[in-house]
Design a protein around this nucleic acid. Structure first.
Lengths: 225, 225
DNA sequence: AATGCCATGTGAAATGGTTCACAAAACAGT
DNA sequence: ACTGTTTTGTGAACCATTTCACATGGCATT
């Protein structure tokens, strides 16, 4: 019997930071599970991801109450619950556009697969790449993007193309009805309000380190982005 | 004659978000420069990076006053000023550890070079990779890590190794006196207080998208992480 | 059944970040 | 020189997030 832990509160808006920390908790719990822990306290979870126990409890409390006072949280149960909240208790059909440096690396990136993100289509505009095989996937012609995204039932697109063509491709991805895009190009893309766009800017963290070095920061906070 | 725009205020702590936005401003200014703009308003800068004009002005005001009332900011001058704040008005000697999927991609990643991050050393533990040439750099044996990092005067290390060995390598990187590390492994690493560590977790943004899709978020904020 | 202990869940307080709103400054046109 | 227009720079107000602190609930032991 499933006991509803908390009535869903439509009013409360969950912050981006909280969601990012859920990813960290999920990672920590996966490890704890491997280490055969049955339960874990907010204190231990916090220690493992350099957070505070109060933060852990507050984050989880937005979604229900999963712990037992005096005992802590059941590792496996909490892990599953977080997976369900994040929507990674299923598989997502992902297409990757741009089989260059970054793109090729991402096809083989095992973390994606582990979390249910299955790359099932590849696209490029380079005739030498089109038709070639990457990890069992044949690279499609970018000109068939819209059609093939629809046919393959793609729900999520990863963009690893040069900044100059990114907007053009995004427009076509949107036309194909895809509602979630992860962009690696260092450019700010325009999408309609009903499409989720996130950017992964790998230079940004290097720049932060550079800033920290030249300014001799004492704060030193670990970013988990 | 250099006119000090503002007395350095040791009290004020600059937030991480502000620094990340400086990266965005820098990127926008680089483009504006190419488009031959001489000046730019906070309004236009904000529009280009999906921020508010007040935010742009506030961010910049932490570091001085660079604009002219009624006119806006001088594009080239502001760009240089931000580069100086971020510490990317120079080159950094970078080593990359782990020449696998991600590592190989990063060696060829042009954005790093553009911002002054020069990858000058590569390390791996795989005998088949040691000695091989990637973009003109010979891959060194991970066993010589500490010694070669020192010899090469490395200031910053990028870690692209499996999570299981990341801590061991970080310990050696720290021993070599490196004070800034960018970690791609999905694991929380321990470093001394005087070492800056940042994590690049590529699954995190995908998980955020997944969360957004299953929860039908209306907020939809672009993350520039 | 009662006691002691431990760790959650959560309002309230504190802190931190963003937006507002306007005075001040600079330029253009007359 | 004056007027109008524009846009900066910045305290103050507002809003969001984090931390605090403690009542509550559950387990274990006797």
């Amino acid at each position: 019997m499933a006991i509803p832990t908390k009535k869903p509160d439509k009013k409360r808006r969950i912050s981006e930071s909280t969601i990012h920390r859920l990813s960290l908790y999920y990672r920590a719990l996966t490890l704890l599970e491997k280490e055969n822990y049955e339960t874990v306290s907010s204190k231990e979870l916090a220690r493992r991801e350099k957070l505070t126990p109060a933060q852990v409890r507050k984050d989880l409390s937005f979604f229900g109450s999963f712990g037992t006072r005096g005992l802590g949280y059941p590792v496996n149960e909490l892990k599953n619950k977080i997976a369900s909240i994040l929507g990674i208790d299923r598989t997502w059909r992902v297409a990757l556009v741009g089989v260059g440096n970054i793109g090729s690396a991402l096809v083989s990136y095992k973390e994606f697969m582990k979390q249910g993100f299955q790359i099932v289509k590849l696209f490029d505009n380079d005739q030498r790449k089109i038709g070639s095989n990457h990890k069992g996937i044949i690279v499609s012609d970018i000109n068939n993007l819209e059609k093939e995204l629809k046919e393959a039932g793609i729900e999520l697109v990863i963009l690893a193309v040069p900044a100059t063509v990114a907007q053009y491709i995004v427009d076509n991805v949107v036309k194909a009805g895809v509602k979630a895009i992860l962009n690696f190009a260092p450019v700010n893309l325009r999408v309609p309000d009903d499409v989720y766009l996130r950017n992964e800017n790998m230079s940004m963290e290097l720049e932060y380190l550079s800033f920290a070095l030249v300014n001799n920061l004492s704060q030193k906070r670990v970013n988990e982005g």
